[in-house]
Design a protein around this nucleic acid. Structure first.
Lengths: 343, 343
DNA sequence: CCCGGTTGCACCATCGATTGCACAAGCCTG
DNA sequence: CAGGCTTGTGCAATCGATGGTGCAACCGGG
């Protein structure tokens, strides 16, 4: 009944969290002194070493934890960097998530990632939620509609950056998809030639036609064919989404040669290709040969694999943070070379 | 100079976010009415339909976004569910992250995951950060020291739950590691027998000896051997962490038979095993056969693979949320059966 | 002893949203 | 028409942390 602060600590359940007011009372000092000591600005406020130590000790004893909601509300900045992420089910996005968190923390900022399952509506809803949490920056990774997110965030004064897929309203960092795909295609063609004894146009599977990365990779794919005078028939280009199921069922319905080379546009698509191979017994020594954009340690060991184009996640994130620091205007586009991994 | 609210909207950069006070002013009403309308409690406050509509329209026009820091500060609950996650580099944790987010959102709550790189210090620091964000619940996934986290959170009044690895201070959901490992071991033994023509004890690689899951899986592994009267020599049990490098270098330094079966304790460990195989040309038709705890779509297709024990992430998370609802006391332990996947 | 300067700390407004409560206006009933 | 009830809305306190400002107490020099 004494004004409510500090409920029963016994149950643990209803125990109020300790605040600077509690600590101030125990230490016989003022909340502002406690605040200054605990957030490190106490020298600037000429708090004595003795009091600082006492407060620190009491805070520790009481298991004090800052209420960031209150702190962020009062300050102008939240130090939160938000990231929107389509999926966690492959190494590429997994690596982005891990490195993003590590780099963010290294800067003394706090990372918040939220996963949007490639659903455009969820993307915007997630952006809305992150803005509500007062994120200072928002990174949209592989967003289907990055510009909508940028526009929304701009109206809330939150700077955004695009990763993996570029947008026109915010600085973007993407892989050099063209060169990566061209080099990977060259590799697949030459390996297929070595194995099958002749150079045929490859198949291309996976991706969305509206998607910048797919377009660039297709351009690299065609370029590598053109270099050696090969023409790719339209029916060898299968672009119906990244999903594994779609890839599998599409291959199932096609009339395919006994041996062929295939450019797979992502590891997710590759899952479908591999399932098809398995089901139809099309792999092994004399079956198809594939190369894949994106790297996966196990996919790399599959016998039919002839190479993978790994996106350089480290350099990509480095570039993102450089852009955050530089705050460039509008739609800068940074392209990061891929790493070609041949077994 | 007019008291600061609503800075220049032109630049977009310094534009103050719209608040309920801005909207109230535009609508010629009070902030409390705006708040009630925008958070849905307006009927309870008997706000007229007309005013509600006007406020809603203005909010939309102004691109209003709730300041959750302020909202959470005022309310008792944050509706945030925090999760601590060791890594994002395998399908198991990736699936946990995705499903956790989906389920959390479905309940109208907000998920925040933070990745701690298997570093015990980071785990506690992350827990501290999440508590600072006033999470209403915290789920510790694969934590190296779950009890330390639970203890810390308990002192802040935040209920915790353990996932993947159990603790003694909070309810835990884990796989039935014993049965899963036993079944997988049986499978590997029988496949190795079929291929190599005799039943030899398998090798066991990966995991930490301090870790409950490793202990349980080892128990299942030994049980499956004991069932058929096989004794496992101590030097076939290699438990020196989950890391791929460690596994690779350990195998490198061992004197191993030409053909053998191996139980691999995680896909991460498997990466090392597979690298070793590759480097030493130990795979292929007549080399080793492995089974692995955890599932990966590409690892599942490797020729040496004879089976994987997939952890049932859906049911695990379902169980976690059931526990959250039930708020059971102390250290309940729910064990979820694994799904044995044989090619 | 007086005065300017320093030291050490407390007071209080503030961030934006929420909510108990007061209160005016309108309506109905007797 | 008085008194009670309903309807619709505003006021002001509050959540916890922060930082500008005010102000005692003390020190040293003239």
């Amino acid at each position: 009944m004494d004004n409510g602060r500090r409920a029963d600590d016994g149950a643990g359940q209803t125990a109020k969290r300790t605040t600077i007011y509690d600590i101030a009372e125990i230490a016989g000092t003022s909340p502002s002194a406690v605040s200054a000591v605990l957030n490190g600005t106490w020298k600037k406020r000429r708090i004595s070493e003795r009091l600082a130590e006492r407060i620190t000790r009491i805070a520790e004893e009481q298991g004090y934890a800052l209420n960031l909601q209150a702190s962020v509300l009062r300050r102008e900045r939240s130090n939160i960097v938000g990231m929107i992420m389509p999926k966690y089910d492959n190494r590429y996005f997994g690596a982005i998530a891990e490195q993003f968190e590590a780099r963010t923390r290294r800067r003394g900022l706090f990372p918040v990632i939220t996963c949007t399952q490639r659903e455009p509506e969820l993307e915007l809803e997630a952006a809305r939620a992150l803005v509500s949490y007062q994120v200072d920056w928002l990174i949209a990774t592989g967003a289907t509609d990055p510009d909508r997110i940028s526009a929304f965030c701009a109206s809330a004064g939150v700077p955004t950056f695009n990763l993996d897929l570029p947008g026109s309203l915010a600085p973007s960092v993407v892989s050099d998809n063209f060169a990566g795909a061209r080099d990977l295609t060259r590799l697949i063609i030459s390996r297929a030639h070595a194995e099958f004894g002749r150079s045929e146009p490859l198949y291309f599977i996976g991706g969305r036609s509206s998607d910048h990365n797919t377009a660039e990779r297709l351009r690299g794919f065609l370029e590598a064919h053109a270099e050696i005078g090969l023409d790719v028939p339209a029916d060898r280009i299968i672009i119906r989404g990244y999903g594994a199921e779609k890839a599998e069922s599409t291959l199932e319905g096609m009339d395919l040669p006994q041996r062929f080379g295939i450019f797979v546009n992502s590891t997710i698509t590759l899952e479908g290709v591999v399932r098809w191979m398995q089901r139809n017994n099309r792999g092994g020594e004399s079956g198809l040969r594939f190369g894949c954009f994106d790297w996966d340690p196990f996919a790399a060991r599959l016998p039919e694999n002839v190479g993978m184009a790994e996106q350089d996640v480290s350099r990509m994130l480095e570039a993102v943070f450089e852009l955050i620091d530089a705050q460039p205007a509008g739609n800068v586009l940074r392209q990061i070379p891929c790493i070609l991994r041949a077994p």
